[in-house]
Nucleic acid binder design. Sequence first.
DNA 1: CCGATATTTCAGTAAATTCTGAAATGTCGG
DNA 2: CCGACATTTCAGAATTTACTGAAATATCGG
Lengths: 194, 194
Amino acid sequence: MNLPPLVQTFVLHFGEMGSRWGINRTVGQIYALLYLSKAPLNAEDIVERLGVSRSNVSMGLKELQAWNLVRLQHKPGDRRDYFATPDDIWQIVRTLVEERKKREIDPTMSLLREVLMQEPASPEERHAQERMREMHDLFELLTGWYADVQRLDTERLVQLLTLGSKVQKILEMKDRLFVVPGSKKNPRDDVKDK
Amino acid sequence: MNLPPLVQTFVLHFGEMGSRWGINRTVGQIYALLYLSKAPLNAEDIVERLGVSRSNVSMGLKELQAWNLVRLQHKPGDRRDYFATPDDIWQIVRTLVEERKKREIDPTMSLLREVLMQEPASPEERHAQERMREMHDLFELLTGWYADVQRLDTERLVQLLTLGSKVQKILEMKDRLFVVPGSKKNPRDDVKDK
DNA sequence: CCGATATTTCAGTAAATTCTGAAATGTCGG
DNA sequence: CCGACATTTCAGAATTTACTGAAATATCGG
């Protein structure tokens, strides 16, 4: 491996982290390398820097492309393929979440919906179905939230995340401001909330 | 494998999904089984239902315990260990997120902080460091949001998630209500935002 | 302390995955 | 169409991970 020490540390770490996800070490390393690189790299560049075989790099790049995590580019007068990650890290996050949803959540939801249609043949199955229903509803809530938030532009998304749970406070404020006339919200209700 | 069809479908699916995470098939299956089960199960129960070796189950349970994903219980007059998942699915989510953070995000943040302290020895390293800084800041924002939200009780958390990005609307409303006196916000600013 | 039962450990094997080199395929300029 | 270069494919090798059975360890009631 032929990399500046600082880069190498990061690349090795992401190789290991990749293993903890479904992603293999080389793919993790390729991605990390591209992420840190100023200019796009071609396959041969990657081979030299990571010290793995050409075919391995080819497969790794193919996988990263399947995940929409790298962009293929070309230089004029050079017919090799160059690869880069998006400059905007938020775009990376969006892609990652989107792809994991597509591969993990969506199929699970299909399966849950299907199984929930069936008639339980025993109390045991009835209970199992209830549990699956809980999971289904949870995923629905989370994906609904995601679908909603995902549409925000980055600036607003950051705003929202920075707020965190302080949103609650604003909500409560809103509730106080727009009391339905006649509901006569009792100020002492606050005590209960504590 | 000796399971009601409906349960088996789910268990097999989670075995496969487990593989896509760092978790191996058997561990995924054990967890799925416990999740669906009404009563706690002992190791021998799991062996019978999944048709894997006793030692494999032992290791799998150990791993699930290390993840805090299962609770160990005992029945009076029975010295075998019984295992169950929390009844509250939100508790499960919280544990999962917490543990993944501990294993993946926290070590990555340490590494990033460490590498960011070093002096870049070349323009290449300087750029790499900038990229790492972006990642660091991103993670900081996300973990900050998480730390904040994680404290909410489940009811409020669900409220927040149900709202999704509608929070934005409320924020804008708040901004309009509490304009700093003298700032004279121009209504035409809205046009720019579009 | 003993025997019965439960769990864990671990060395060896099985299985799955990752990686490589060589060959095949694709693509360009001339 | 050819030759040079680029990329992909793929069978087998290397490595890693998962799994098993047997032995070791632990814990209980008596």
